[in-house]
Design a protein around this nucleic acid. Structure first.
Lengths: 249, 249
DNA sequence: ACAAAAGTGTTATTTCTACACCCATGC
DNA sequence: GCATGGGTGTAGAAATAACACTTTTGT
């Protein structure tokens, strides 16, 4: 991390990451609890002067989750002039979260680039808070706490984008364990979309994409027929990400 | 326009507009010919300190084309650290296009937000060059001149995005005259997509979206049956833009 | 034995695709 | 009258939606 030496950072530009995880049939987002404030924030950061913006987002993701090589994609630049952190820097300085000389820098106008990431819930052992926050936790999407600034809007837009992308992109790699059952994959889709889907039609459609391999193993332990375990064919998965699934025209 | 007083602009952030027009069955883009350089550029600009980023893009569009209320949409932030205008400011200063004191400001690293716009070709009477360029012209997409920096990449990405958006968004309003024939609309689609489409199936599909009104008038003058004139139902068009056309899941 | 949940298959419906035929207009 | 290109309809194929029966497993 380039640290917090403001002269080593691009001014007025931040990145904020909406990090989605999937656990117990719920879509969750990784949020930071701000120090001594009853408010939460998306994990975010600034961009080093010699750092690609994508790199900065990757770094933020890795700092909070410890994960590398994760699906991460920019989805929108929030650039309204009204977007500023009036008093936020000063407040953080008061709380001792940052040195006083950073307060001014932080209080200027910022535009922020939103990224969304899909990560496997169980691989994130102990999410780490940053210096301005006291904890970093998974929050269920349907029971979100109060978020700072326009972070609710960013989060909503990330979710909307994800739903839209589901129409021509596969989802699941990095969000599910390496091996998973068809019902689990379906539950993921249903959760993201907020609907229910027909079991059999879902399976047919999904297999039709040709990005799944049946491992030959089954998931045992439940009092019913053991479902097959699948895994993604990563090569084909990546191709599908690029080319899109439903060609449309 | 906030002018070019660098202290009134956000540092390190620019907007570049890919302005598409449609004329003689060709997709065209509005480009600027740089002064005394055999190179072209996308119309772009900087963001005033109290200006929304969207506003800045709208302003650039309006400055070059004179048009207001046009479909304009951000599609990507180009944020690689390697994106800088090394020597570009100095060169412009030498040419007298800008005052010397701006050269340094311009030569720093910039990230640029790409917008694409769809405008009606015939409504742009005399596109106006900015102060660093000697002319502003429509260029056919399949015969592009050499572009400055990564502007080719930006343009390509804009076109790709447009093609993708065609799968769930209508297109045509602001790109065609207020009244147009079905074959004209089809030609637009074919041009954007770079394919040919079946006349009858296209018509059925398009009418199925329910965003067109048949005016009752016909387009006469050609040596064949006169085609109907249609216009967009703007209300429904806008709804379709928001909700998407092919629901997918 | 039973409940729960997965596997698989079938049919009806809708949508998409690929065509063919007729109609108006200017030369 | 004829070439050009638009208007409309229709049969076959394909994709989607709706639904039923069988199988496996833990209790």
């Amino acid at each position: 991390m380039p640290g917090f030496a403001t002269d080593q950072l691009l001014q007025g530009l931040s990145v904020d990451c909406v990090i989605f995880g999937f656990h117990q049939n719920e879509l969750k987002v990784l949020l930071l609890k701000l120090k001594q404030l009853d408010m939460w924030a998306l994990p975010g950061g600034f961009v080093g002067v010699t750092e690609d913006v994508d790199q900065a987002a990757t770094r933020v993701l890795s700092e909070r989750t410890g994960l590398e090589d994760i699906f991460l994609q920019q989805f929108f630049l929030f650039g309204d002039a009204s977007r500023h952190r009036a008093g936020h820097g000063a407040r953080l300085a008061e709380l001792g979260a940052i040195p006083a000389e950073w307060a001014d820098w932080l209080d200027r106008r910022f535009v922020t680039l939103g990224y969304y990431a899909l990560v496997e819930y169980s691989r994130v052992k102990a999410p780490k808070p940053d210096q301005t926050s006291e904890s970093c936790e998974w929050c269920a999407l349907n029971a979100l706490p109060k978020l700072m600034l326009d972070h609710s809007e960013i989060l909503t837009k990330a979710h909307d984008t994800l739903k839209k992308h589901l129409n021509d992109q596969p989802i699941g790699l990095n969000l599910l364990p390496a091996q998973f059952t068809m019902p689990e994959l379906q539950a993921l889709y249903e959760t993201v979309l907020g609907t229910t889907l027909d079991r059999r039609n879902f399976q047919r459609k999904m297999l039709g994409y040709g990005i799944l391999n049946r491992t030959g193993k089954r998931m045992t332990g439940a009092p019913h027929k053991a479902p097959w375990l699948y895994e993604f064919d990563e090569e084909k998965y990546r191709l599908a990400l690029q080319a899109g699934l439903n060609t449309g025209w």
